[in-house]
Simulated assay, not measured.
Amino acid sequence: MVDSLSVSAAPNGQLKATATVHSTRTVKLQALTVAVRSANGGNYDYPGATAATLGTQATKYTSGSRAFPAGTYTYFVAYKVHDSWRSLAPVKSFTSGTSTTPTPTATPTPTSPATPTPTASTPAGTPTQTASPTPTPTATSSTTPSAPSTAAAPVGIAGTWRQVFSDEFNGTGLDGSKWNSNWFGCSGCVTKPPNSAEASAYSPSQVSVSDGSLHLNLIQQPTTVGGKTYPNVSGLVTSNGKAQFTYGAFESRIYTPSSGTQMANWPSFWLDGQNWPTDGELDVLEGLGGSACYHFHSTAGGPGGCASGTYSGGWHTFGAEWKQGSVTYYYDGKQVGQITSGITSAPMYLILNNAINPDHSGTNVVPADMKVDYVRVWQH
């Protein structure tokens, strides 16, 4: 429980946060911090997250200091336990740029994320459509890439990072400034899949945001698009035309559908260029034949592999670091593979989709909900 929470001035025009918290029983926290959100949902968490043991006696936490671009922000206490980040009421606000006067707000308590989960070498997508290039978003000055669901950097990926994109899916609907809810189609249209091997069309009706997660729902519903009837319809989001990147660290925390101890269907988190395969395709995660796999497709081929271990039946973090000449893949913060051939350098946009492939019938499950806690992108 939060007994007190406030923001105060620090040297050099920066701010710091102070919180007093307690628990009804003794609990060891992996981390305790004060999280901050800008008006458009950007992450500006205070530095200095620390491990703590809470009990019935009040514990005081003081964050590190940081500067904020001019604007209004909400802030709240967040803590990590059992590898899951959670948030506490109250949610307060302050304004930076003129004077800093913290005031309580009626903003509801942010939804707590749930907890992390994840052989053939089939491409996650073989798009043939071409769209007009879009500018790569720039990072907001002084943005700290941290949030209640993760640390101040990509999980397991070393280096100094600045966050340039994020969506925590804490609202009640998809953020249309960041995502499209179908594959290269008009707003609200049902579209064909990126890959002709898929057995589902994509409809915005199968995309929703609730309980702090993006939901991509696959259901059995014969759907005809472009003269072809697909036995299923599912959910997909893409940042094409709204955000694209050249190099960086890309991470998403995902709860994939499961078939026993295996990953069901063909859930995917990937990036794609404007001209496939010339511009490249970076598959951070694709469920293939029950396994969690990664690939990089270009005119040079499609090398990749599948991670050992079980990445289904719970929340897991899937990430990749893309830099000149290589992509290194990280699942739950551990390196699971690296590709150093055929790596392209053209900008790519983000895609998440809950696909299904009839060739993997042994692990297919319908209906199935692919849940996404967050998507984040960092660059140096």
Rank of each mutant, 00 (worst) to 15 (best):
M1Y: 14
S6C: 06
A10P: 03
V21Q: 03
S23M: 03
R25T: 09
V27W: 02
V27L: 14
V34A: 06
G42R: 14
G42T: 14
P47H: 01
A49F: 05
A49G: 12
A52L: 08
A58N: 12
Y61N: 06
Y61K: 08
A70V: 12
Y75A: 08
F76H: 15
A78G: 11
D83W: 14
S84P: 04
A89G: 14
A89N: 11
A89C: 08
K92H: 15
K92Q: 12
T100P: 09
T107D: 04
S112F: 04
G125F: 12
T130A: 04
A131C: 10
S132W: 07
T134H: 10
A139M: 10
T140Y: 02
P148Y: 12
P154Q: 07
G156P: 08
A158R: 07
W161G: 10
W161M: 10
D167A: 08
E168F: 10
N182Q: 02
C189H: 00
C189R: 00
V190G: 02
S196Q: 12
S196A: 13
S203E: 01
Q206K: 11
V207G: 01
S208K: 02
V209Y: 01
D211P: 02
L218Q: 03
I219K: 11
I219D: 11
T223C: 05
G226H: 01
Y230T: 11
P231F: 05
S234P: 09
V237I: 15
Q244N: 15
T246N: 06
Y247L: 14
G248Q: 02
R253V: 13
T261G: 06
A264E: 01
A264Q: 00
F269R: 08
W270K: 13
L271D: 09
D272C: 12
T278D: 13
D279M: 03
G280F: 04
L282D: 15
L282K: 11
L285S: 04
L288C: 10
Y294G: 14
H295I: 12
F296I: 07
F296E: 10
S298Y: 02
G301D: 04
G304A: 07
G305A: 10
S308W: 04
H316A: 08
F318S: 15
W322C: 05
V327Q: 00
T328V: 09
Q338C: 08
I339R: 04
S345Q: 07
P347G: 06
M348R: 10
Y349W: 15
I351L: 14
N353I: 06
A355M: 07
P358A: 15
G362W: 15
V365D: 02
A368G: 05
D369A: 05
M370W: 01
D373Q: 14
